[in-house]
Nucleic acid binder design. Structure first.
Length: 571
RNA sequence: GCGCCCAUGGCUCAAUUGGAUAGAGCAUUUGACUACGGAUCAAAAGGUUGAGGGUUCGAAUCCUUCUGGGCGCGCCA
């Protein structure tokens, strides 16, 4: 149940006020606290402690209140009755948001012919958890991997292939579009080196750069040879992306539709823009002015056609939005990208408004921070290269395997992978996604303390008890007087629903991760202090504690699933 | 130049969006039933929340000035 909401509503009803209910930081103060007396002190004309005393008398009449007391400058602390807690604590169910929405989520945004690197970690992992959260709350979530598959980088890749194989038919003037080109193929790993190599060359070789830019424009305008070679490497690259997606255990994208798909809608979108007289010629390009008189900051125009006639990402993003409008017609579109792109999205949203495509509040950009190394600069491997995502996954796996070997346990590879992935993903999820954070390989691979493996370990422990207790499956709730550890755990369990709702509302995946960690701490303390299967434990206590274990396990398992992690059978 | 973001124990992060004695993890020191599984638990030590000023019952959080960092500002995404 949403304990917080229930208690909050009852108290509001009783006091005829809007109470700001909170969980006290220090659990000894009580299960809940409120500052309502301090807030209402002005209108009441009493001092806060007097007013609080009045409130306390009323609160004591509520059937779920064990006691209520005044503390400090006028806080009211409330302790719940044991039987109320016993009666209401339950495993989480699918929660339905008040108003289920259709939500398009744009994250991932992988690039063709460029392997995933550490920059894709957050968009993938956080995007996946937001997607799962939204789904859990009953929203219709539609995910888009808005691939970089049609812009400048494609010209670079093709130019690089031409450089390697100038004799290939795709680059000849007499290219036959109906020919059989099945013998031309690429090794995925090698393909991933093409774009970086080309980009590096373009920095020094202006002629190469200009040639690549021309190829981009010609590709977009239908050049047969370029399109043919594109159609060969594109699927190879996509398969490679999806392999990484799978190894990250993120929900497959509903749509792998990127810039190329969007560009199909150039004509209707251009018409919309022209109809409103928004397209302006400038330096050979065609742009949309989005600056407003009230702006006190730089607001460059949106590029629709560049001077070579190609559609850059400014334009394809408008078209992608158009595509989503005419297909999903979503209530909301949420973009999850690096925060450095926030100006771009502000521009895009202005265009959407100018075109009456979406109101401003339907579009949302969540900008996540950079993952830095211990030097405070974007994380690189020891040899100074941008760290590949597969390399990072492997690094954590190797560490996990070593850890298992050291402990003398025998776990299969699948389990080790689950542990390693948990370490990597939890480390990402626990940070405030809008801030930069430092990625410390030693800390991520330590598997101790505030880590993914700690979370999984806790779940495995609970499963282990339940397995052991299988024989006496009394599912009825036998209540006994709660110990402090039992009580703290149950209160936290009952706060799950509020946490999930708040996390989604604030697009704050760290709330789920931190909730799970706090829950695990309480579980482990309970586990340590409250024996269950030991011979000296009476049946009533055992049955009650087993019930707690079941509910705790189910709650934790739900949180783990929302984070896209898997509980191993053993560890 | 204009604009946005950040600064919290030695290190990495929190702080219920203005609430009580600023909490965790790592590292350090110490302890735990020969174990419902020790990837755990318990405890100690460690803080003028970058600096100054202001707002109020109450500030890490809001305003202001300063210092130090990061990022963005038309043909990349």
């Amino acid at each position: 149940m949403n304990l917080y909401k229930y208690v909050s509503d009852k108290i509001n009803e009783k006091l005829g006020a809007t109470v700001n209910l909170e969980s006290p930081r220090n659990r000894e103060f009580g299960d809940f606290a409120t500052n309502v007396a301090m807030v209402n002190v002005k209108s009441a004309g009493k001092n806060p402690r007097e007013l609080a005393t009045d409130y306390v008398a009323k609160l004591a009449e509520l059937d779920f209140v064990e006691n209520a007391s005044v503390a400090g400058p006028g806080f009211i602390n409330i302790k719940l009755r044991d039987d109320f807690i016993w009666k209401n604590v339950a495993a989480p169910e699918q929660i339905t948001a008040d108003k289920p929405l259709v939500i398009d989520m744009d994250y991932g945004a992988y690039n063709v012919a460029k392997s995933l690197h550490i920059g894709h970690l957050r968009t993938s992992i956080v995007g996946d958890t937001l997607y799962r959260l939204g789904r859990f709350l009953g929203h219709k979530m539609i995910s888009y991997n808005h691939m970089g598959d049609w812009g400048r980088s494609m010209g670079f890749v093709i130019a690089w292939i031409e450089r390697l194989h100038p004799d290939w038919p795709f680059f000849q003037s007499n290219f036959d579009p109906d020919g059989d080109y099945s013998k031309y193929t690429f090794d995925p790993a090698e393909l991933d080196t093409y774009y970086p190599s080309a980009a590096a060359l373009a920095k020094t070789d202006t002629a190469f750069l200009e040639h690549a830019q021309m190829i981009t424009a010609e590709l977009q305008q239908g050049h047969a040879g370029y399109n043919a070679i594109y159609n060969i490497f594109m699927p190879i690259s996509l398969a490679s992306m999806n392999k990484t997606v799978k190894s990250l255990n993120i929900v497959p994208f509903d749509n792998d539709l990127g810039e190329r798909n969007a560009a199909k809608y150039t004509a209707p979108v251009e018409k919309m823009i022209r109809d409103k007289n928004l397209l302006v010629k400038s330096d050979g390009a065609e742009i949309i002015i989005v600056k407003r008189d009230t702006d006190n900051k730089p607001m460059p125009p949106v590029m629709f056609y560049n001077s070579r006639g190609a559609v850059p990402y400014d334009a394809t993003d408008i078209m992608a939005l158009y595509y989503r409008k005419i297909t999903d017609n979503p209530d909301k579109v949420i973009y999850l990208t690096d925060k450095r792109q926030s100006l771009h999205f502000e521009q895009l949203f202005r265009v959407a408004e100018l075109l009456n495509m979406f109101p401003a509040d339907a579009l949302e950009h969540i900008g996540y921070g950079t993952i830095n190394g211990s030097d405070g600069k974007p994380f690189k491997t020891r040899d100074g290269n941008a760290a590949g995502l597969n390399d990072i996954i492997d690094m954590v796996r190797v560490a996990a395997r070593a850890r298992v070997a050291e402990s003398g346990k025998k776990l299969d590879d699948e389990t080790i992978d689950e542990i390693a992935l948990a370490a990597l993903k939890f480390n990402d999820l626990m940070h405030d996604l809008r801030s930069d954070y430092i990625f410390d390989p030693d800390s991520v691979t330590s598997f101790e303390g505030r880590t993914g493996p700690y979370i999984l370990y806790t779940a495995v422990r609970l499963n282990s008890i339940l397995k052991k207790a299988e024989t006496n499956q009394k599912s009825e709730i036998v209540n006994h007087k709660l110990t402090v550890d039992e009580r703290n755990l149950l209160i936290q369990i009952m706060d799950f629903e509020r946490t999930v709702l708040t996390a989604f509302d604030n697009r704050a995946t760290d709330l789920i991760a931190n909730y799970a960690y706090d829950l695990c701490q309480l579980i482990n303390t309970f586990y340590h202090n409250c024996p269950i299967m030991r011979d000296d434990i009476d049946d009533k206590t055992r049955a009650g504690r087993l019930h707690i274990v079941r509910v705790a396990r189910d709650t934790l398992a739900t949180a783990i699933d929302l984070m896209g992690l898997t509980v191993p059978r053993e560890m």
